[in-house]
């Protein structure tokens, strides 16, 4: 490792820290100025009415309503830096523990949606781009535009109607069967419960990737070097394989990593529809219930995941694209 690499590493680290600071403060600020009264939303109007002032004061203390905003943020940040993410006010368990559990539920569902939308979207995009203007192209473009303009939660509702209510082949919601002891839940149970949420997420995710890949592919197919390949007698499939895939692989990779954030955002809505106890739903609960430590925990974790995805794409780009890699080697 030479000096420049170290400097670049530090710059990257500083960027992540700044990002986390900014994102967490923004989330905190929004929550603090939101009109939701934590007591009313968590305890309820009726219960509040029957409480003594002393009890109410205790609750106000618990939800941190007596401490100034800046101090609260500082307290949270200082603990966070020392590795303590705090205790969730809603779950009354350490935030780290809640996050772990929710992430375990969501992770494979989101990963499946991420991989599926990436692979299928890429394949459709290549197919459409290589046949630009023909029926294949119109089919893929039509599907993509339709899906892109359909909200994820609406699609989730439609899937729910079709597969759970009418066909009754898949469960209506939750991550595990209702009324089964935790010890009796099998892996198959978990998989079956994840199918619809993952499908809803990937069906919408496909459109974006397919459209962008199509555009790139069509561009490559109209390039001079594909014309030359044709002049040299290469067949269409050979050209797609030799030149097409090679030249759209890099942009597709960037897109795929950038789509992490979209999958993440989409999961919030989709989990809500399927009552799926994952990260997304926890985020909604934390937001509506003023659970500041939990919401900030989720915010930071998702920011790191999205940032990590983009950073990885950047990094891989530099390794794979010879124009960047060789440029760097020469610059040294």
């Amino acid at each position: 490792m030479d000096k420049r690499q170290i400097v670049r590493g530090f710059a990257g680290l500083a960027r992540v820290l700044l990002l986390i600071l900014g994102v967490s403060f923004a989330a905190f600020f929004l929550l603090a100025v939101s009109p939701i009264d934590p007591l009313q939303s968590n305890v309820g109007q009726a219960a509040l009415g029957s409480m003594s002032q002393e009890q109410i004061d205790k609750l106000r203390e618990y939800w941190g309503m007596n401490t100034p905003m800046a101090v609260r943020f500082w307290n949270w940040a200082w603990d966070f830096i020392r590795g303590d993410m705090g205790v969730s006010l809603l779950y009354r368990r350490p935030v780290a523990e809640v996050l772990l559990e929710k992430t375990a539920n969501s992770l494979w569902m989101m990963a499946a949606a991420w991989v599926l939308s990436g692979v299928i979207g890429f394949a459709l995009g290549v197919w459409a781009g290589a046949n630009r203007g023909k029926w294949q192209d119109k089919l893929v473009t039509g599907y993509s535009l339709l899906m892109a303009s359909t909200p994820a939660f609406f699609l989730a509702l439609v899937l729910l109607m079709v597969f759970s209510v009418w066909l009754k082949v898949l469960p209506v919601g939750f991550a595990v069967p209702v009324g089964t002891a935790a010890a009796d839940v099998t892996l198959a149970d978990r998989l079956v419960h994840g199918i619809l949420p993952a499908a809803a997420l990937s069906l919408t995710g496909i459109s974006n990737i397919a459209l962008q890949t199509r555009e790139k592919m069509a561009e490559v197919m109209e390039s001079d070097y594909v014309l030359f390949a044709q002049a040299r007698g290469e067949k269409k499939w050979t050209m797609i394989r030799r030149h097409g895939l090679r030249n759209i692989a890099l942009p597709a990779m960037t897109l795929q990593f950038a789509s992490v954030s979209e999958i993440f955002g989409g999961s919030v809505l989709v989990e809500q529809v399927f009552s799926y106890p994952g990260l997304g739903q926890a985020a909604v609960d934390a937001g509506l219930g003023s659970d500041v430590p939990l919401l900030l925990g989720i915010t930071v974790v998702s920011a790191v995941i999205v940032f990590g995805g983009n950073a990885l794409a950047d990094f891989l780009y530099g390794i794979i694209d010879p124009r960047i890699r060789k440029g760097r080697e020469r610059g040294r």
């Binding site: 001079d224 030359f228 002049a231 040299r232 030149h243 030249n247």
Partner: peptide, 29 residues
């Protein structure tokens, strides 16, 4: 005959695949 008996020598670097090594391109794979 295209690419076998009749061949094209194009005019600029844009006719080469930017991400493929020259040898591979000359040999057509």
């Amino acid at each position: 005959v295209r690419g076998r008996e009749i061949v094209l020598v194009p005019q600029s670097v844009s006719y080469l695949d930017p991400l493929m090594k020259v040898g591979n391109q000359v040999r057509k794979g």
